[in-house]
């Protein structure tokens, strides 16, 4: 039986993890590769690095991180943040990333999804969507790090993204993000019903039952979370044991 994936997300700025784990016995807890290795050993099913580096010149640092991670950590990992072209994708995939996640660039230039899928395979192309609730059962797409609404319905956009060749949909609820009060389950289940590609839930995880709800009621295929792991409130193993006890299929290492 296919298990549900638990995916820690690491924000990387200028080559350093921001909001990293504080309580782990690592040589350098700001080092993305060390943290990736740590999460792999803890049982993470995949990893996402979100590059929030602002300056263009420093972006090459990310390539080195990708290369090093690929040489040490043998689980799939995705790079997101600032990917604007096929060239950007190629560079990251060649360095060893398994997938790239595109957000604003895909909205501005949907052809990028098709072109990326054609060149590298749709399994490499994750379309990330920032969704903000707008009335009942309606969500609007935002871009530029959630600063700019684009007047597009989220449900319509993810259907289009799937048609264009997206391999997975990473769906962040901007309303839930940072609240630690749980994922937007209505958004997730609507999305899961609309597309035949996996939906990765993001935004709002604070308690283990939030992850359970996203995976059961929300019908998500995977859950992404940051602070719940980084702040060491729960380890990945603890969460997986909890989920297994709630009859959610997860990969637990023995």
């Amino acid at each position: 039986m296919l298990t549900k994936r638990i995916i820690p997300c690491l924000d990387v700025k200028d080559g350093r993890v921001v909001k990293g784990i504080n309580f782990v016995n690592l040589r350098d807890e700001g080092d993305p590769v060390e943290l990736a290795d740590y999460y792999n050993r803890e049982g993470a099913d995949e990893l996402v690095f979100l590059d929030i580096t602002a300056s263009f010149e420093k972006r090459d640092i990310m390539i080195d991180i990708v290369r090093e991670t690929a040489a040490r950590v043998f689980i799939p990992f995705t790079i997101g943040g600032g990917i604007r072209s096929i060239g950007d994708m190629r560079q990251l995939l060649l360095a060893g990333a398994d997938k790239v996640s595109i957000n604003s660039a895909a909205v501005k230039n949907p052809e990028l999804i098709t072109e990326g899928a054609r060149k590298f395979g749709s399994q490499c192309i994750v379309v990330a969507v920032d969704a903000k609730r707008k009335g009942n059962n309606n969500w609007e797409v935002y871009i530029n790090g959630g600063r700019k609404p684009v007047g597009k319905s989220v449900i319509e956009w993810i259907r289009e993204a799937e048609r264009l060749g997206a391999g997975e949909i990473l769906l962040t609820s901007m309303d839930a993000d940072g609240t630690k009060e749980g994922y937007d389950l209505e958004l997730l289940s609507r999305a899961a019903e609309e597309v035949s590609k996996p939906v990765i839930a993001s935004g709002g995880a604070g308690k283990p039952y939030h992850l359970r709800d996203a995976l059961s009621k929300g019908q998500a295929d995977a859950v992404l979370a940051a602070s719940i792991f980084h702040e060491k409130e729960y380890s990945i193993l603890q969460i997986k044991q909890y989920l297994a006890g709630q009859n959610i299929p997860v990969r637990i290492l023995t």
Binding site: M1, L2, T3, K4, R5, D45, Q123, G167, E168, S196, K197, P198, D221, A222, R251
Partner: peptide
């Protein structure tokens, strides 16, 4: 066949 399994591709950890 997407009539038989809802999600294609089969992505993730399985036994």
């Amino acid at each position: 066949d997407t009539q038989i399994v809802k999600k294609v591709p089969h992505i993730g950890w399985n036994r």
